[in-house]
Design a binder for these strands. Sequence first.
DNA 1: TATTTCACTTTCCTTTGGGAAAGTACTATA
DNA 2: TATAGTACTTTCCCAAAGGAAAGTGAAATA
Lengths: 116, 116
Amino acid sequence: MANKMGYLSCLDTVKPVRDAIEVINGKWKLPIIISVMTGNERFTDIQESIPGVTPKVLAKELKDLEQHQLIKRVVINDYPVKILYKPEPYADTLTPIIEALKGWGLNHRKKIFEKE
Amino acid sequence: MANKMGYLSCLDTVKPVRDAIEVINGKWKLPIIISVMTGNERFTDIQESIPGVTPKVLAKELKDLEQHQLIKRVVINDYPVKILYKPEPYADTLTPIIEALKGWGLNHRKKIFEKE
DNA sequence: TATTTCACTTTCCTTTGGGAAAGTACTATA
DNA sequence: TATAGTACTTTCCCAAAGGAAAGTGAAATA
């Protein structure tokens, strides 16, 4: 079967981009990763560092991020038990994405304020 | 008022990242931008270049992207009327984000296949 | 003994995203 | 005249995202 499409294929780029989006999708995953990478380890610290996040959402997203091996949940058996969230080394691979989004967001905000 | 928080502030990064996410959120916006930047101009071409996108979703996302000045809708008054979607120069500013996501997605897929 | 803290969970509810399928208005082509 | 293509819109529906508020259980602190 030959080439019968009238459009230009862009799957080379679209497919991996979609794979990445699936992992970091939603409003909260990247902010949570950023908070944990910044050094926030406790549930309530992470929650307070991200305005608007509710405990329900935070608990769910932390589980998702753990499954993707981006953070780990560490239980410390002192009395009382402490729970810490730490970034996994794999989280570092997201830095270029985070930096690109940060740069774009900064510039976008500037653009919006200037023009409108 | 002094510093009374027990957590580390990460708003410097979280805020602009959230601004960026708001613009490119969802499953389809980046794939559509990629398709248009690749050179697909016609509605059906864009649709066919992105497996799974429905006309309803595509129409809605194209409008969103137009509002954000990332693409423009051009009406050509031949008979029949032609409608073309073209990238705006501002779309180019997304390239670092797209490249970062592409690189990450490629590597992630490799990681998944190797390990599990 | 009462209150607070921590790390959640539970319930309820609304909004948003998005898929399936059909329809539409126009024009071109056979 | 009939069929096909273009660029959508419309309707219906479902699932997931996400917000608000309260609850929970254990332990520390006042």
